[in-house]
Design a protein around this nucleic acid. Structure first.
Length: 275
DNA sequence: CCGACGTCCTGCTAGC
DNA sequence: TGCTAGCAGGACGTCG
């Protein structure tokens, strides 16, 4: 399940493969993605050259040599890769661009929670993202972060999953960051002290940085833009480790349901009433 | 206004 | 051994 480190890895992998390359065709499959691709967008991408590739939260943004901006979300099972056009089309490939008549920049998504769409221009894109996303985790500032947490009665786990609170964190890295900060997932945002908020802010950046260094985590079918898997999953402290011993204290890792998501934590390292 | 919950979708797997 | 129910969860709409 692609979160910030996985999306960042995809973008870094894809950048040299797509930037400077010309889009010579676009093919849209019959299966509807979460946000469907419109046929009238075809003529606005064909003939254009990819100028830049960026990430904001879990969204991938392709800048073209026109005002239009391509916006991609990998959802749960999305794979965004470049392969020779002569390679067989992978199953569940719902959309692709042909680059220079030789390469297939393909969007494969088994569960179709992902999307590929075209936005008119940079301001439209900015408005789209601003409406949905809070700050990047690396750009969080101590005081505003504390204020945001303290404003809400929701548990810290729910706040970390909320893209408007902080952009790019999903179920895996929320659990890992809370462990690294020594905070219980159910700890109410409003009850968070300045010291706790600071621990969480630092832990988030540390966990995400390390995950990016490891090319993200491959849990089910995530691959980077070059088709290479991630390796951070071997470093998980809590995620997917329910019933196993905590690497830090030996206590059995617990699993509870928070904000509709399975949530993994160490009852000893992350005490309910931690100060 | 805020927060909780249901929905989408398919593949894997636990359990009978 | 084979079947099926249940689970996985990111974003967003709806409901209380």
């Amino acid at each position: 399940m692609p979160e910030l480190p996985e999306v960042e890895t995809v973008v870094r992998d894809l950048r040299p493969l797509v930037c400077g390359h010309r889009i010579t065709d676009v093919i849209n499959g019959p299966h509807r993605l979460r946000r469907p691709w419109r046929d009238e967008w075809n003529e606005r991408v064909v003939g254009r050259t990819v100028q830049a590739l960026d990430r904001r939260g879990k969204w991938i943004i392709a800048e073209l040599d026109s005002p239009a901006r391509l916006l991609v979300h990998l959802g749960m099972t999305g794979q965004f890769t470049v392969a020779p056009l002569t390679d067989p089309l992978p199953t569940h490939t719902h959309w692709y661009l042909v680059l220079d008549g030789r390469w297939r920049w393909q969007f494969r998504d088994i569960r179709r929670f992902g999307s590929v769409e075209l936005l008119a221009d940079a301001p439209t894109l900015e408005a789209f993202l601003a409406k949905r996303l809070g700050p990047e985790p690396f750009a969080l500032q101590a005081q505003p972060w504390l204020v945001t947490l303290n404003k809400s009665q929701r548990p810290l786990k729910a706040l970390l999953l909320d893209q408007a609170v902080v952009a790019g964190v999903g179920n895996i890295y929320a659990d890992e960051a809370l462990f690294a900060a020594g905070l219980h997932p159910l700890h109410p945002g409003a009850a968070t002290t300045p010291a706790q908020a600071e621990r969480l802010r630092v832990a988030l950046a540390a966990v995400l940085t390390r995950a990016i260094d490891e090319r993200g985590s491959t849990i089910r079918n995530y691959v980077g833009g070059s088709g290479l898997a991630g390796r951070y999953q071997t470093a998980f402290a809590v995620y997917g480790r329910a019933g196993q011993a905590c690497r830090q204290c030996g206590t059995e890792i617990g699993c509870i349901r928070v904000a509709g998501r399975s949530t993994h934590y160490c009852p000893t390292c992350q005490p309910q009433a931690s100060a």
